[in-house]
Simulated assay, not measured.
Amino acid sequence: MTQSQGPQKPPHELVLLTKPGCHLCEAARRTVAAVAGELGLPWAERSILEDPALEARFAEEVPVVMIDGVQRDFWHIDPARLRRLLLA
């Protein structure tokens, strides 16, 4: 019989906020997909144009990485920083 290590910590909620035609969003999508894939984490992408509140808040900052509902990075997404944040 093996002992349980206790409850597993749920994975972070990882969301990439983008908008159509954004060249920085293309690069961010590749970075997020690679890091999340490496760590085995699910992630989602949302267009700020689908939500007026998001569009008003992030119009000049996309792409934006949100982790657990908190803005953690924008414009140029650094894979090493993203990895550190997700492993914390």
Rank of each mutant, 00 (worst) to 15 (best):
H76V: 08
W75A: 11
F58A: 07
P10T: 07
T2W: 14
R30Y: 01
E61L: 14
C22K: 00
I48L: 13
G69W: 03
R57N: 06
R57W: 00
R57M: 08
T31N: 02
E61P: 03
V65A: 10
L16I: 00
D73W: 01
G6L: 06
K9E: 12
P63S: 13
A44E: 14
A53I: 10
V32A: 10
M66V: 09
E26K: 15
Q3H: 13
W43R: 05
K9R: 15
W75C: 07
A27K: 09
L24F: 05
T2L: 14
V65H: 02
V62M: 07
A34F: 08
M1A: 14
R72A: 10
A80I: 13
R81P: 01
L87V: 03
E38S: 08
V35G: 05
G69S: 00
E13C: 05
A36N: 08
A27D: 02
R30K: 12
C25L: 05
I48A: 10
A56I: 03
G69A: 09
P10C: 06
H23M: 07
R83P: 03
F74I: 08
V70K: 12
A56P: 04
H76P: 04
A27M: 09
H76F: 04
D78H: 05
P63F: 12
A56V: 02
E38W: 01
W75I: 12
V35H: 07
E26M: 14
Q3R: 11
L54H: 08
R83C: 05
A34T: 14
A33S: 15
L86I: 11
L82I: 06
E50N: 15
A59E: 10
G37L: 14
D51R: 09
H12Y: 13
L87R: 11
K9D: 11
P10E: 04
I48W: 08
L24P: 03
G21Y: 02
W43V: 01
S47M: 10
V35T: 05
Q3N: 11
A56G: 11
M1Y: 11
R83I: 03
S47L: 08
I67F: 04
L54G: 05
M1Q: 12
V32K: 01
V70S: 09
T2D: 15
L17T: 00
E60A: 12
L16Y: 06
H12P: 12
E55C: 13
Q3C: 07
R46Q: 13
H12K: 15
M66C: 10
F74T: 12
S4F: 08
G6Q: 07
